[in-house]
Write a protein that binds this DNA or RNA. Structure first.
Lengths: 165, 165
DNA sequence: CTTGTAGTGATATAACATAACATTTTTACG
DNA sequence: CGTAAAAATGTTATGTTATATCACTACAAG
């Protein structure tokens, strides 16, 4: 089996996770330099906290870690950093969990779909999120202008299925 | 133009809304009787509050109305009623808004998709919510067991588009 | 009529999020 | 450089959404 598994193909498979973290940070560094954005200490650390976890983390989980490191202790600190990272596509928000995950396909702007484990909060991201023809047709017919689509499938990941048997 | 517009075809079109309310309540009455469920005063009124509004209402909005009518004044009252109605498919939860809407196609169990106006919170429901082949394939391949899928498209409804020009 | 279950009342608190304003850091530019 | 404008952060307070827990009531089934 190959060792250098590619994060962008990652589902719930085992993989070399340190690579995800370093690759994700690098992409962000480059992107920010290119676009004259400031990936400050708090923002960069917030991203790395999410990258280190393949599960969705709540804003207050992130905040707790930032606090431990003296990088700000009040909610707005975490929410601002999360906001910046969201805006620039480095992380995504999981609506069903009110939580946040690092993007698995950083760099490209995309409208992702997610598989979310209701037990362990692990999240797999699919870049290809197109809605059904039916919904788009209904929107067109009724004159509704779609701006953003949320697609989140909740269920059990392979390990939790095993654990629950 | 026909007067007796069918609620199940409703998008953002004008329609005879009183019919939605009475029809929705009737379906719930019959369903509960058939399944030996108790559509109590609080539950029935909660449903009618949502039926009366074509926009999504927060739990605390619902609670405020219940309170006015002396039907319970504390959060758990509203959340329990909403929970019952959700379980039995009479209403749906809009994740992006942390809010609730009456089902537009009551009776049939279904996995709906929504068009949500970010301005006025109006919601149109589509019964047909199938995810993309890609997401399902990824789930199958990785051994993820999908239990529920959320599909919510956010944007502007026709009236808000006009209003914002 | 009594007993178990479902439903409700009530209090408290958890979890998630933002408004508002003061202060510091960075950048741009004369 | 120096300084003004802009961006980011610090801090306090509060708003919003949701649930745990325990006491009490209604009601249907035996």
């Amino acid at each position: 089996m190959r060792k250098r598994q590619n994060c962008s193909l990652l589902g719930f498979a085992q993989h070399d996770h340190k690579r995800c973290v370093s690759a994700g940070l690098k992409v962000a560094d480059v992107y920010c330099q290119k676009h004259k954005l400031r990936l400050t200490t708090v923002r960069r650390r917030t991203l790395s906290i999410l990258l280190e976890s393949h599960t969705a983390l709540g804003a207050y989980d992130v905040l707790a870690r930032l606090r431990e490191e003296g990088l700000g202790s009040e909610p707005p600190v975490a929410y601002r950093a999360l906001g910046f990272l969201l805006e620039n596509g480095f992380i995504h928000r999981i609506e069903r969990l009110n939580a946040y995950v690092a993007c698995s396909h950083p760099g490209a702007l995309h409208n992702p779909a997610f598989l979310i484990c209701s037990d362990c909060r692990a999240v797999a991201e699919s870049t290809v999120a197109t809605t059904t023809g039916t919904l788009n047709r209904q929107a067109r017919e009724s004159g509704f202008q779609i701006e953003h689509t949320t697609i989140e499938a909740e269920g059990q990941c392979p390990s939790c299925q095993q654990a629950n048997q």
